[in-house]
Design a protein around this nucleic acid. Structure first.
Lengths: 254, 254
DNA sequence: TGAAAAAATATGTCTGACATAATAACTCTT
DNA sequence: AAGAGTTATTATGTCAGACATATTTTTTCA
């Protein structure tokens, strides 16, 4: 219920935006729903109409809602939501971290990242590669510290996308960031998982330095395979744990 | 200078957002630049500070800018821009339709759409396929009318993405929409091009109905090849035309 | 019955004020 | 003169109430 988010943003308009987004993402306000009028939202959230409008402006930009004079503000259909937006991804991750969401995230990473990696191997500059290698070293240095491992891990993947020089692949970094965040959250169920991925990252790095696109692609595919296994394992352990807790609650209730 | 856009949006805040986005995208306000203060922007665009704030709120949501109290509003670095956002794509398309942009767009479509097509063939429902087929029929019915061809063409590609059931692939529809819009703009240089793509779409449709992922992937790759050829041809013709106009201007100036 | 006119209403915009947080300036001490 | 602590300063953040505008809904009248 609480923020449970590393983000600060004490801005009231940002908080409103997040809360409205939550209501939409969790389906309380379904597609096509007309939102309450601005003045009603203002009184409900106890902020001014101006803040409400700024919040809605943010959500409009992400494709969640659309508004017309007199007609009101409506929730747009899902296909118009810009799910590749970083904030939207993070909100979904903290509100509805379903298995389906995890699988979809894996699926698209598997489509994009191996190809990006191949392009990176061909087109990246030595400076690009050096930056990726620095990230690799950071991961190595982190040892078994999951938190310290996370940041260079993201830099590693981002570095590959950046090296492609393709603005759209670079923008895909937001999606990768969300996926890694999810993996990090799940790694409580499997603390050793991050470290195990290190040699796979090494293989990617070597293939890139060798400027061998096919090897780079294959190495990235293997890394994706490992990631998928780890996530499936973590999810099943979590489900098991949740079920046990459920049982315990049921017993207590009797 | 004028709007030159099919979009209506007479909203002043939307206009301001677009203009500020233009200044950022075209590099007038580079990465790291501090924007003028809100009251200055308000007087420059001759709107109230509230409208400025709503406009900036929109751009914040797209990752273009970030603002902190007292410190001001800054242009974020390019890697934070959400280039997969539909509006941002359309703005870039109308302000900076460079060859590089076109190639990047082609590159990412080539990565995503063939795989999406393969997934669609496996996972799509018959209703999904029927919707895609309706789009195909619409394209056929449009004949040589480029404008009438454009809408069902988009529905065809969107239909495939939707049929995958993957929210991220669905969100990628915004990028495809921008790419098709670009193709449409360029097709003045090559009016027959759209119609020529019809049999390639047919091949995709057949492969999907056959639920054959490999054939579907291959058919989509061929469609991408054709699209690429058309765009390269159109771009070279346009460059040639632009050069001739330039010559003409120079001669007149003498 | 149906088209034109009037009313109602939710978003869009403007104004001016105050709150807040981060920076810049200025103390004062050592 | 250097540095730590305090006090302005300033740009964004928020609030309040009013009016403008565009649709929809209702009413009126031919």
């Amino acid at each position: 219920m609480a923020k449970a988010d590393s983000n600060d943003s004490p801005q009231s308009s940002a908080q409103v935006a997040r809360e409205v987004a939550r209501l939409i993402l969790t389906g309380v306000w379904r597609e096509g729903t007309t939102l309450p009028r601005e003045i009603e939202l203002a009184s409900r959230f106890d902020v001014s109409r101006a803040s409400i409008r700024e919040a809605l402006s943010l959500l409009k930009a992400k494709g969640l809602i659309v508004s017309r004079q007199k007609a009101g503000t409506h929730v747009r259909s899902r296909i118009d939501w810009n799910m590749l937006d970083e904030e939207l991804l993070n909100w979904t991750l903290s509100e509805l971290p379903t298995q389906e969401f995890a699988q979809q995230l894996l699926e698209i990473r598997r489509i994009v990242e191996p190809e990006a990696c191949a392009i990176c191997a061909v087109r990246g500059s030595d400076e690009d590669f050096a930056r990726i290698e620095r990230a690799y070293r950071g991961m190595d240095a982190a040892g078994l510290d999951r938190l310290a491992y996370a940041e260079p891990d993201l830099q590693f993947h981002r570095g590959i996308l950046i090296a492609t020089g393709n603005d759209f692949l670079i923008a895909f970094g937001a999606t990768v960031a969300a996926a890694l965040r999810m993996s990090f959250n799940l790694s409580t169920q499997n603390p050793g998982a991050p470290r195990k991925s290190l040699p796979y990252h090494r293989a990617v790095l070597d293939a890139i330095w060798a400027r061998n696109p096919d090897r780079a692609r294959q190495a990235m595919i293997k890394l994706m395979d490992l990631t998928e296994q780890n996530i499936i394992l973590a999810l099943s352990r979590q489900r098991k744990k949740d079920a046990e807790e459920d049982n315990a609650r049921t017993r207590r209730a009797r």
